[in-house]
Computed example of a mutant assay.
Amino acid sequence: MTDHEVLRVFCDPGGRHGNELAVVRDGASVPDESGRQALARELGFSETVFVDDPDRGLIDIYTPTLRLPFAGHPCVGAAWLLGVPRLVTPAGEVTVRDADGLVWIAARAAWAPPRTLRRYGSPAEVDALPVPPPGEWVYAWAWQDEADGRVRARAFPGRGDGIDEDEATGAAALLLTARLGRALTITQGRGSQILTAPVPAGTGSGNHQLIEVGGRVRRA
Rank of each mutant, 00 (worst) to 15 (best):
T169C: 14
M1N: 07
E125F: 02
T63M: 06
C11F: 00
W141M: 06
P132T: 13
S29E: 13
H4G: 07
E165R: 08
G158C: 10
A140R: 01
V138L: 11
G206K: 11
P90R: 09
P114H: 09
A220E: 11
V138S: 03
V103Q: 06
P157V: 07
D98E: 14
A110H: 01
R179Y: 04
P198V: 07
G15Y: 09
A110W: 03
R8P: 01
L43T: 09
L82D: 04
P134M: 13
Q188P: 00
L58I: 04
S192E: 07
L175D: 00
V76T: 02
P31F: 07
D60H: 13
T203V: 13
L21Y: 05
T185P: 03
A109D: 07
A201H: 10
C75G: 10
I211N: 00
R182G: 08
T63Y: 04
A172W: 01
S29Q: 09
G72Y: 01
A28K: 12
E93P: 04
P113W: 05
A153N: 06
V51E: 02
P132E: 11
W141H: 09
A153L: 07
E212N: 10
E165T: 06
S122F: 07
N19P: 07
C75Q: 08
R218I: 13
L58E: 13
G215C: 11
G160N: 09
D60P: 02
S34M: 15
